[in-house]
Design a protein around this nucleic acid. Sequence first.
DNA 1: CATTTGATCAATCAATTCATTGAATGTAGT
DNA 2: ACTACATTCAATGAATTGATTGATCAAATG
Lengths: 224, 224
Amino acid sequence: MAGMDQDHRQIQFFSEVAELARAVGSAQRLMLLQHVAQGERSVERLAELSHMTIANASQHLQQLKRANFVQSRREGKNVLYRIGNGPIIELLGALTQLAEFNRTEIRALVEDSFRQQDKLEGVSREELLERLRDSSVTILDVRPEDEFASGHLPGAVNIPYEELEGRLSELPRDNEVIAYCRGSRCILAPDAVTVLRARGIQARFFPDGFPSWKAAGLAIETKH
Amino acid sequence: MAGMDQDHRQIQFFSEVAELARAVGSAQRLMLLQHVAQGERSVERLAELSHMTIANASQHLQQLKRANFVQSRREGKNVLYRIGNGPIIELLGALTQLAEFNRTEIRALVEDSFRQQDKLEGVSREELLERLRDSSVTILDVRPEDEFASGHLPGAVNIPYEELEGRLSELPRDNEVIAYCRGSRCILAPDAVTVLRARGIQARFFPDGFPSWKAAGLAIETKH
DNA sequence: CATTTGATCAATCAATTCATTGAATGTAGT
DNA sequence: ACTACATTCAATGAATTGATTGATCAAATG
């Protein structure tokens, strides 16, 4: 039987693929992975960010490691996890794309009429680059402080979404504000825009977010 | 606490994504999905193709259906399953890409010792461009077919590394071969060069790889 | 060298997943 | 209505996974 060996090899390969899929088949691990993707983090930090116990986080991280989604190294007392090699971000992107598709499909069926203007118009990368050149806008980074510190758009102001309402005075009244966060699946920036507009501040958001900006090789600042 | 709702929404979304991942986190379901992707098939046919009992196949198919990976309709006595809407193929592509990447990476570790002094001299981009102009070389792309299809160097021949030894005859004997793959981290091309030289074929490799070529804005071909 | 802190390990229990069985649908042909 | 056939359903037990606990290990600190 000629196909026998072929078959077996195929099953073998599918098993490997399935293993990968199962490794990201947990909301907890996806959350960890998302945080790891922002930069090296200790287990403790990741546990805190993802609201889980340290032991639990550790075990999930080890599963991710077994599947090559993350790597780790020891630095003093801490073990730091970082994102692994290979097209991992692409995979996560494909997953979220499909999830979003399914979501909007369901929405299309369920609340066809009720879809208000939550289609906030976004700013394209091209426009943003242009507006950056003549500094005619205030770039607002609404991500948490640590993410901001490890990299952000040049000239951006950091006010985490949680603190936004209390720190509106820090924003110039005359400039348009362009808010951004982590990208398409992150709703910090659109929410921020809603808050700002409710206060009469002209605001739009940059839907690509920081990761894609960085991925495109555009200039970034760190620390500040 | 302002972030509470934020968090909850994110967890909700991750759960949805995780559910998708779990749905394809089984070799059996991947196999079914692969066959469904070729066209409408009955449960019986799919069970046969995937070497599983009908009841079992039926249940797996229903899981895939719940996750929107497939749809079904009844035609006479048979229930026909077809692939669902949305970027499903893209997701499967991303999964297999990553699986393949991990495969070659493992090989890189295993074979590392065995090819320590692989100081194979590489071809620079400048030289390659020049040799391309007078067509005095055969450009060999040893990446998997799908990667090749989505973009490759102009005039390149595609023989995935796995198939190289069986398809040596497709290479012209008189031209020097210049192999490339994904770049510095990828060992497909250097390995290919070793294989070719062992067969007496003059070969060097282009260490930059396709991604860097593309990034430099140089001409590429697609599909072929 | 003992202590503290971060991380992992080992053991446990509850929950979930999986393949298998046999029974129950639903559909078409006679 | 009876029968054959394709598919699904429901129930079972084995295997796997998940979160929790406390013990253990490794590195830094006094």
